[in-house]
């Protein structure tokens, strides 16, 4: 399958990347690992005039320890990050979600920035132009309907990133730089909740870094898939326990990951959160297992992850 026509530009600095972006009036995509972007382009889901390769920007690659934080450049690969001793020692939930992402080969190419900022997915969206033209364009393709839910008012595509929920449970923050300056926001604030435009970042803005607090935590990640590798989560649950309280992240179901807080870790609290997350989950028939089942698994997996942590944490 060939790619649509576009130009290729390599940026050496963030400023240069922003400049190219504005030169092309925003008809541009930033390219890091490409494991999410290239299939989207092959399917003609986007037709940019230019692809701006940001892999050469040094400051986006580094992983450094500063103060009590790990500063992670978004272009660090998932595999590099997985091998970072601080993550292995202190952040078991994040380590496990990195390890559970796709497969080894794609972990070595895919970046943490790209993984967080991956587009939402739907069985009726990630298809060729011919398939989608025959079916008719939905909201996410600029059409006026949803092809999955009759009379839906919004897009129900699923956010399938494995690592954003883990990062949310460890209170990670994202640094965003754009034409109008720089800001630091909680990872959860990256998500708009709208499947059509799943991110709050504005056109041209670049994820510059991820700040991960390095505190001793317990945690685990549980992922529901049909196969043991390559697959996106049909439901993913991340749990991190720190200083007696816990956070739960849920992914793979609906247009954004959600995070929940437990003031205390006890059975009652866990059940409450499991129920609440179950209520919040609004899956539709756009992934390979039924919506009712996926909804049910949100609660089941939350309870299961806590049990696993209690027994010693690792999978």
């Amino acid at each position: 399958m060939i790619l649509p026509k576009f130009e290729y530009k390599k940026a050496r600095t963030i400023e240069e990347a922003l400049e190219i972006y504005s030169q092309y009036n925003g008809e541009a995509f930033y390219l890091a690992g490409g494991t999410d972007l290239v299939p989207l382009l092959k399917h003609r889901l986007f037709n940019p005039k230019v692809v701006i390769d940001i892999k050469g920007i040094e400051e986006l690659k580094t992983i450094t320890k500063k103060g009590g934080n790990l500063l992670v450049g978004p272009n660090a690969t998932l595999y590099e990050l997985k091998g970072t001793p601080e993550i292995q020692e202190k952040l078991p939930c994040l380590f496990q979600s990195l390890d559970a992402t796709s497969c080894e080969t794609l972990q070595m190419r895919g970046t943490i920035g790209g993984n967080i900022m991956q587009n939402t997915r739907c069985l009726q969206y990630n298809k060729s132009l011919e398939w989608r033209t025959a079916r008719g364009f939905c909201y996410k393709m600029g059409g006026k309907t949803c092809n999955v839910v009759l009379n839906a008012k919004a897009c129900y595509s699923n956010y399938c990133g494995d690592n954003a929920p883990s990062l949310m449970t460890v209170d990670a923050k994202a640094r965003i730089v754009g034409p109008t300056g720089e800001k630091t926001i909680k990872v959860e604030k990256l998500f708009s909740g709208d499947g059509k435009e799943p991110f709050t970042v504005k056109p041209g803005e670049i994820l510059k870094g991820i700040i991960i607090p390095l505190k001793e935590t317990k945690g685990a990640y549980e992922k529901l898939t049909v196969r043991g590798s390559i697959d996106y989560p049909l439901v993913g649950v991340a749990v991190t326990i720190k200083d007696g309280s816990a956070k739960v992240g849920v992914t793979g179901i609906g247009p954004c990951p959600r995070v929940y807080e437990l003031k205390e870790v006890n059975e009652k609290e866990i059940n409450n959160i499991a129920d609440k997350a179950y209520e919040d989950a609004k899956p539709v028939l756009n992934a390979v297992l039924t919506p009712a089942y996926r909804k049910k698994m949100v609660g089941v997996l939350i309870k299961r992850v806590f049990k696993r942590i209690e027994k010693g944490g690792s999978r």
């Binding site: 009726q124 398939w131 196969r227 043991g228 590798s229 390979v288």
Partner: peptide, 23 residues
Amino acid sequence: NMWYRGFLLNPDLLEYKVPLACD
């Protein structure tokens, strides 16, 4: 294979689940 009316929903190697070594 999964269908929505005449549309094949998993005509690929991602959503059509050929078992992997780990399975």
